[in-house]
Design a protein around this nucleic acid. Structure first.
Length: 471
RNA sequence: GGCCCGUUCGUCUAUCGGUUAGGACAUCUGGUUUUCAACCAGGCAAGAGGGGUUCGAUUCCCCUACGGGCUGCCA
């Protein structure tokens, strides 16, 4: 990066569905660049397609951005609201000769393309109205009067210099016959008016940039720094779509991926900083650079995402995790946490967070502190509580009655009991684990007893010792 | 069809003409261990194919193959 004086980036999604994971990554890159240089990150909703745009989709974008923690500067801009301005610019271009009125009927153009395709010829439409002045009193669109020859070079920070022959470009429509702007036109006007200095977007727009460049030049506006990033592909290498499972950001939120982990994973997908794989937001902000973005499409890999997720969970503050857990439950329509459960989670977090890879994973591993007596034993726990084991448990309960409740004394008591019965510690730990958690897989028995406290622990042991064997 | 972009272990990637082609995830083996996980040690594994340029190509150029994108009064 050279000119970092005043960086302004933006994310400009169209509200036509859920927020795509690719959109989220593009937003992240823009956000990272702006935040790194103390610039601005703007949000614009590209809602000029009235038929497909919905308020729900706009809300979905806002929700996705909020969950990902990508805060934008200023108000959300609605592209549709700026239609008058887009028309104004188109009129200016009409006036200065950079655009013209085209009266060719839509069906006529469609027919031409159809025929051209049949004949295996170029479907590039050349309007007969480009140089005519005998305008009829009929509906028209305003087209860009693009250069016929020569070439346009897109100086792209990711793709390098991309040269497009002007002869392969048509005179794109600026204003539709109903007077509304096309995306191609609106995006240029908006980016200019909003002061956007760096356009980071999917490379499906790379070719479009050549035509948009014509508008910048026609208006004598400074062109932005371009950075067209590769799209994300599915695990089969094909374009990411519904059949690949999760494609919307919120689906990841619903699976229990912490937002910080999602940012880390998404940032690393297609961008690199040497061998750094796992990093914090602060590091990402310090390191992010357009130069580190790769040119080939990347695939989503859930296994790696879960690894990243686990790393972040381990490093997240306990109270923050409890907050995220509560938000996760609310998001997925489950009962949220009671104060007692929050307290319990906070106390147990130290022994469950480093073995969890997702938010629901934490909840599952912390089940022992979230449920109340009498515990429901699962099949394996039931099996571990055989008569002999229950007998030992009863004795252990008595022994633990008067010891001080610390890891050392607990350890001493358990070892003594195990020795007295000539069993290994493991043999004793199994029923104890079942008694405390109702399962055969749980955190360390010591940790659980410490978290649960003397009264609750002994009560659970007593319950288990008295439990009737299952038929 | 035309134009544009891409192609390093299974996956994400490092390398910016000279390396035993490095790391991470996954996987396999061993260790640690009260279960699971974590953790530690180690193994397997890659330059799409073909031509050039060069003393020397993963790196630069061309062709082919494959993948993707654009080609819309969608964005």
């Amino acid at each position: 990066m050279t000119d970092t004086a005043r960086i302004v980036t933006r994310i400009a999604p169209s509200p036509t569905g859920m927020m795509h994971i690719g959109t989220a990554r593009t937003a992240l890159f823009n956000w990272l660049l702006a935040r790194r240089h103390g610039g601005q990150f703007l949000l614009r909703i590209e809602d000029t397609d009235r038929a497909r745009s919905t308020p729900e989709a706009t809300q979905a974008i806002l929700d996705g951005m909020a969950w990902l923690g990508l805060d934008h500067d200023g108000e959300v801009v609605s592209q549709f609201d700026r239609a008058p301005r887009h028309a104004e610019v188109a009129r200016q271009m009409l006036a200065n000769g950079h655009a013209y009125k085209c009266f060719s009927p839509q069906d006529e153009i469609a027919a031409f393309r159809e025929a051209a395709k049949e004949a295996g010829q170029s479907t590039l439409f050349h309007s007969p109205w480009r140089d005519r002045t005998d305008h009829p009193d009929a509906p028209y669109v305003i087209r860009l009067r693009a250069p016929l020859d020569g070439q346009t070079v897109i100086r792209d920070k990711v793709q390098g210099d991309v040269t497009i022959q002007n002869a392969t470009l048509d005179d794109m429509i600026l204003l539709r016959s109903d007077g509304t702007p096309t995306y191609m036109h609106a995006v240029v006007v908006d980016d200019h008016d909003m002061g956007v200095t760096h356009v980071i977007r999917g490379d499906d727009h790379l070719n479009n940039a050549a035509r948009q460049l014509q508008v910048f030049r026609a208006m004598d506006w400074a062109e932005p720094v371009w950075a067209h990033i590769p799209l994300i592909h599915g695990e089969d290498g094909k374009k990411l779509s519904k059949r690949h499972g999760a494609t919307g950001v919120m689906e990841f939120a619903e699976m229990g991926v912490p937002a910080a982990a999602m940012r880390n994973y998404l940032a690393r997908l297609g961008w690199s900083h040497g061998d750094d794989e796992l990093f914090t937001d602060a590091e990402a902000r310090d390191w992010f650079d357009l130069d580190g973005i790769g040119r080939s499409p990347a695939r989503l890999d859930m296994k790696k995402l879960w690894h990243v997720s686990g790393w972040h969970i381990t490093r997240t503050d306990d109270a923050d995790l409890v907050r995220q857990l509560d938000a996760f439950l609310a998001l997925t329509g489950q009962p949220t946490l009671s104060q007692a459960q929050k307290d319990g989670l906070l106390a147990a977090m130290f022994c469950v967070k480093d073995r969890a890879r997702s938010l629901p994973d934490i909840l599952d591993k912390a089940l022992f502190v979230l449920t109340n007596r009498p515990l429901a034993y699962d099949d394996k726990a039931q099996a571990a509580l055989d008569p002999a084991s229950r007998g030992i448990l009863a004795e252990l309960t008595a022994q633990l009655q008067n010891v001080s409740w610390s890891r050392d004394t607990l350890e001493g008591a358990l070892t003594t009991t195990a020795d007295a019965h000539g069993v290994s510690f493991g043999k004793l730990a199994a029923p104890l684990r079942a008694a405390l958690s109702g399962r055969t897989v749980s955190p360390s028995v010591y940790d659980m007893m410490l978290v649960l406290g003397r009264d609750e622990s002994l009560a659970r042991l007593t319950d288990a010792a008295a439990a009737a064997p299952r038929d």
